[in-house]
Simulated scan of single mutants.
Amino acid sequence: MTFINHSSKDGIIGLLVGDAVGVPYEFLDRETIARHPAVDMIGYGTHQQPAGTWSDDGALTVALLVSLIHHPELDTIDLGRRFIQWYRQGIWAARGEVFDIGIATRKAIAHIEQDPTRPEQAGGNDEYSNGNGSLMRILPLIYKLVNKDAATRLDWITRVSSLTHRHPVSILGGLIYVEIGIQLLQSPSSTTLKQCYQQACQHINVQYADYPEIERYQRLLSGEIDQFPIEEISSSGYVVHTLEASIWVLLHTSNYREAILQAVNLGEDTDTTAAVAGGLAGIYYGYEQIPKEWLHPLARLEEMVEYCEQFDQQGE
């Protein structure tokens, strides 16, 4: 059962706002942030950017969104070209400036530039290529794949992830995230976040039981990640940690604002944890629950909402 009253701006703007709230705190450890916890959207800090500035997470999410507007059946050559436009020209960046990029993503974009005809071979596929750089930008596929079968979901997520991250652990992280997002889209509004999460875990444990790397996500897929104490939740850039931390904060908070601030206050990769959590929080709570004082300073808000509307029209 699919509920069609969801707008992609719930998740997309939810991600962009979360990213922007996290940007000033990136790389600060939990103890440092605890002395001056995040309580609002601010500017400057780590990257010296004005309030409302999203990072590479948001930019590459928008690049995927716009690529899918122009190529609804997925064209990874076009997507690779848009990644290059972002990195070299600042297109899709919040304010036309690239101030943050992961090592794996930078290497992958260089590979795409060298051979733009095979972008799906660009991403690293070794054990050390399992940062969160593909998870952070995969959210538009939640909306594209909600009515697709499991094989199509796996194919699209693998292809999109592989532009920067080809290792099965990274691909599986994207799969889990998309499946949880789809569960949120398909569940009645009376369903709790915990119920949506546990239902998604049950489906994933059956659907991807033969996936060897699923053991990496055992804590998350137990359906009880919220039972782990905060001391056992890492917010590093490792894709497994980011996914665990993001779901943990959703299950420990009761509205969009709380989820984003909790994600940021975990420290370290604050922009990505808040972006990944923010996308799902936006889907669950809705655009109207994103604080207006966080929307007002968000870079290019009207343009981003317009992109979301164009994207949504494809499904009508």
Results as ranks from 00 to 15, higher is better:
Ala51Asn: 11
Ile84Cys: 03
Ile91Arg: 03
Thr61Asp: 08
Leu68Gln: 07
Ile91Cys: 00
Pro72Arg: 07
Ala51Thr: 07
Pro37Gly: 00
Arg82Tyr: 10
Pro72Thr: 00
Ala93Thr: 12
Met41Cys: 05
Gly80Lys: 14
Gly45Gln: 05
Ala51Phe: 13
Arg35Gly: 02
Pro72Asp: 01
Gln48Trp: 08
Asp56Ile: 01
Tyr87Ser: 03
Asp78Gln: 13
Thr61Asn: 08
Pro37Val: 03
Pro72Leu: 04
Leu28Lys: 12
Thr46Asn: 03
Leu64Ser: 05
Asp57Pro: 05
His70Lys: 14
Asp57Gln: 09
Leu74Cys: 05
Leu64Tyr: 09
His71Ser: 08
Ala51Ser: 14
Val66Phe: 01
Thr32Met: 05
Ile33His: 11
Glu73Pro: 04
Gly43Phe: 13
Ala94Arg: 14
Arg30Asn: 01
Ile77Gln: 10
Ser55Asn: 06
Glu97Ile: 13
His70Gln: 13
Ala104Cys: 10
Ile69Cys: 03
Gln48His: 11
Leu79Glu: 13
Arg30Gln: 05
Asp57Gly: 03
Arg30Glu: 00
Arg35Asn: 12
Ile69Lys: 06
Thr53Ser: 11
Tyr87Met: 13
Gly52Phe: 14
Asp75Asn: 15
Pro72Gly: 01
Ala59Pro: 13
Arg81Glu: 02
Asp29Asn: 12
Trp86His: 01
Glu97Leu: 12
Ile103Val: 04
Val39Lys: 08
Arg82Phe: 09
Leu64Lys: 11
Ile33Leu: 12
Phe99Lys: 07
Asp57Ile: 07
Gly90Glu: 10
Ala63Val: 07
Arg88Ala: 00
Asp75Gly: 06
Met41Pro: 10
Ile84His: 04
Val62Ala: 02
